[in-house]
Every structure is written in structure tokens, then in C-alpha cells.
């Protein structure tokens, strides 16, 4: 038996909306520690890792580890039917291949029950080592989204360079070139407006912009985004979900052959 209750159905809806273009099918692994999902996009260039800790839920019960394979577009269809302030309760048991989403209005006057068919998904699970990164940049998530969208209109790839003074995003294409340089900014009223650059050694890496633009669909989930980089390693783009966990996106770099 699995049962979990979230104060805001809208949170899970937003999470699924932010990843469903990248991965259409995925398996949620449920255990006493929470709900986790890891999946590669169909071209195996990027990877999404979602972690929702059990203590971030209002109620969480998982008698034993349980896998729930879901089509995320179908899940999104159902989650769209939740009212904006509805609570969400998820229920599933191993006896039937269904997960139930219960949407309850704040005054308890409306209770909607949606049952989604579960599916068997065979996918490779990758072990992601806890690595030290050469550079870690935290910046407002809206600023990161603006940068990747703006550069996406110039070129297909972005060259990210981190030095101790700044982080540069550069793109070039048929119409010309663009460079956006962000300096460290610590003296802000709100901590989420900061741009923080932690550099062990300078890095310079190139990535496909369309994936980064896709990752930035998670902007509404967190005011700030953390980008971790090491030479010839996948970049990590992390959105922290307050009090419950994170969504991390990994993207393999482009490397000269």
C-alpha cells in the first residue's frame, strides 16, 4: 500500500509539466524515504532526476518499495483537473495496476477521484556519483531562463565559461554572435536574487541549447537555479523544491571528436 498527501496538487502538476516534454514515460520509485524518478530523454543525451522526500509530504506511507510506471502526459492530463488550491492524495497498491489521485478542495466540499493506469516501463537506471564540481553557479532561475532563450534565437549551442569573476554564456549562428556575462552579485535584498560563483578551477563547456531551454521549464518551481560544471562532464541544472526535494537535469556536453 502506498499513500501520500501533498498540501498543493499544483506542485506535482508543475513538476510534471516541467519534465514531460523531455521524458514521456517514467517509473516513480516509492519507498520509505520518498518518491524518486530517474529517466533519460529518448535520445539519451539528458537525464532527469526527481526526488520528493517523504518528510515533505503531509502524510506518507509506503509499506514496501513500489514502482509506478506512468505516462507523464497522461498524468499531466489528470493533474490539470486539480483546482489551484486543492490538496492531492495519491494511493496505489500492488494488487491493481492503478494509481489514484484524489483532489480535495480547501473547504472539503469537492472531492475528485482520478485513476491512472500504471504501466511497465523498462529503462536503464544510471548511477550518478557524488562528484565535486569545478564550478558551481547559483543565479535567479528567471535570469537563467532568459539567457538560454535569448541565446536560443542566435545559435544551437552555448559555450559556458566560468572564471572567478564571472560566468559567460556565448552562442553563435548564421546571423551573428552573442555573449552574456553575469558577474557575481551577493549584495541583494532577497537571497534568491543573488548570483553566486564558486570556482575551484575555470571551466569551459559547450551544450545543446534546446535541452537547457527545456530544463528552464522548471523555472516556476524555484526562484533560484544551481548550475554545476566540470570539464568534459555533464552539467547539472538543479531546481530546489522548498521543503520537499529537488528536480535535477543532467546534460552531456558536446565534445570535439
Amino acid at each position: 500500500m502506498f499513500e501520500a498527501q501533498m498540501a498543493q496538487a499544483a506542485l506535482l502538476k508543475q513538476i510534471i509539466e516541467s519534465i514531460r516534454e523531455l521524458i514521456t514515460e517514467a517509473t516513480f520509485e516509492v519507498s520509505g524515504t520518498g518518491m524518486m524518478l530517474q529517466a533519460m530523454d529518448s535520445s539519451h543525451v539528458s537525464l532527469v532526476a526527481l526526488n520528493l522526500r517523504s518528510d515533505g509530504f503531509q502524510l506518507f506511507r509506503a509499506d514496501r518499495p513500489f514502482s509506478m510506471g506512468m505516462n507523464l502526459n497522461h498524468m499531466a492530463k489528470m493533474l490539470k483537473c486539480a483546482g489551484k488550491d486543492d490538496t492531492l492524495t495519491m494511493r496505489a497498491d500492488e494488487a491493481n495496476d492503478l494509481v489514484t489521485f484524489l483532489f480535495e478542495s480547501p473547504g472539503n466540499e469537492r472531492l475528485a477521484e482520478f485513476e491512472l493506469k500504471l504501466m511497465d516501463i523498462t529503462s536503464e537506471n544510471l548511477g550518478i556519483p557524488d562528484a565535486e564540481y569545478s564550478a558551481t553557479v547559483s543565479m535567479p532561475s528567471a535570469e537563467f531562463q532568459r539567457i538560454v532563450k535569448d541565446l536560443g534565437s542566435i545559435g544551437d549551442t552555448v559555450e559556458i565559461t566560468v572564471t572567478k569573476d564571472d560566468v559567460r554564456f556565448a552562442a553563435s549562428g548564421d546571423i551573428g554572435n552573442a555573449t552574456i556575462k553575469c558577474r557575481q552579485l551577493l549584495d541583494t535584498e532577497k537571497p534568491e536574487d543573488r548570483t553566486l560563483i564558486e570556482m575551484v578551477e575555470p571551466v569551459n563547456l559547450t551544450f545543446a541549447l534546446r535541452y537547457l531551454i527545456n530544463f528552464s521549464k522548471a523555472t516556476s518551481l524555484a526562484p533560484s537555479v544551481t548550475i554545476k560544471l566540470s570539464t568534459e562532464m555533464p552539467v547539472v541544472v538543479e531546481y530546489k523544491l522548498s521543503d520537499i526535494g529537488y528536480v535535477r537535469f543532467y546534460l552531456a556536453p558536446k565534445i570535439e571528436d
Binding site: 533519460m40 535520445s43 539519451h44 543525451v45 539528458s46 537525464l47 536503464e124 537506471n125 544510471l126 548511477g127 550518478i128 556519483p129 549551442t157 559555450e159 559547450t206 545543446a208 562532464m233 555533464p234 543532467y250 546534460l251 552531456a252 556536453p253 558536446k254 565534445i255 570535439e256 571528436d257
Partner: peptide, 14 residues
Amino acid sequence: VSGQRSISTFFATK
């Protein structure tokens, strides 16, 4: 820049 690497070349399959 040319080659797009696959993510699975960096992280081993569990």
C-alpha cells in the same frame, strides 16, 4: 564543436 555525447557514457548503468 561537433560530437554530442550520450549521458550514459558518463554514468554507469546500475
